[in-house]
Amino acid sequence: MRFEQLDVWKRASRLSCQIYQVTESVSNWGFKDQITRSGLSIPSNIAEGEERETLKDQIRFLYYAKGSLGELVTQLYIGIEVGYLAKEPALLMVQEAKELAKILGAIIKQKQSKSKS
């Protein structure tokens, strides 16, 4: 299956697009750069992992994507707190990021058990 067909990749890509949209008017370049990079890293790492030949590499890149989700959640909370992001849309993105992290965790476990058999 190509990564473009994966629901988790599609959802992560939409989340990344939302990050770009909600940060369009943020004037703090450092914050804007960091949060858009972490958001972009998620679907990018899912795609890169799926293009790798070995399960070990695939799992490693899924872990990178999962780590970027944690980074993104942190940045969303900080963005709310400092007033860069509107609370309600940012909290919806936090919820989506947490759901994606759970999905990635399940995919990682599935691939790990596949690699052991």
Results as ranks from 00 to 15, higher is better:
82 V>R: 07
9 W>F: 13
4 E>L: 07
48 E>Y: 08
19 I>P: 10
64 Y>W: 14
68 S>M: 06
88 E>S: 08
45 N>K: 08
10 K>M: 09
89 P>Y: 02
24 E>Q: 12
29 W>G: 00
59 I>P: 10
4 E>H: 11
16 S>Q: 00
73 V>L: 01
20 Y>Q: 04
54 T>D: 08
11 R>C: 05
20 Y>D: 13
36 T>A: 08
63 Y>E: 15
60 R>Y: 15
85 L>W: 01
43 P>L: 01
79 G>D: 01
13 S>H: 07
39 G>N: 09
19 I>F: 01
66 K>D: 11
63 Y>P: 03
81 E>D: 14
88 E>W: 02
113 S>G: 00
74 T>K: 04
26 V>Q: 02
56 K>T: 11
115 S>Y: 09
60 R>P: 09
22 V>N: 00
28 N>E: 12
84 Y>R: 04
74 T>D: 05
11 R>W: 05
34 Q>H: 15
20 Y>M: 03
1 M>K: 12
36 T>R: 15
7 D>H: 03
41 S>T: 12
101 A>T: 02
45 N>L: 04
94 V>D: 03
2 R>N: 13
71 E>T: 09
15 L>F: 05
1 M>G: 14
84 Y>I: 02
34 Q>D: 08
109 K>N: 15
39 G>V: 02
68 S>W: 06
106 A>Q: 12
52 R>A: 06
51 E>K: 12
26 V>M: 03
101 A>N: 07
55 L>R: 14
33 D>T: 12
57 D>W: 10
39 G>Y: 05
79 G>Y: 01
48 E>W: 06
79 G>I: 00
70 G>C: 09
98 K>E: 15
7 D>A: 05
71 E>F: 14
27 S>G: 10
1 M>I: 03
86 A>N: 12
89 P>D: 02
76 L>D: 06
3 F>H: 15
74 T>H: 08
110 Q>L: 04
20 Y>K: 07
5 Q>E: 15
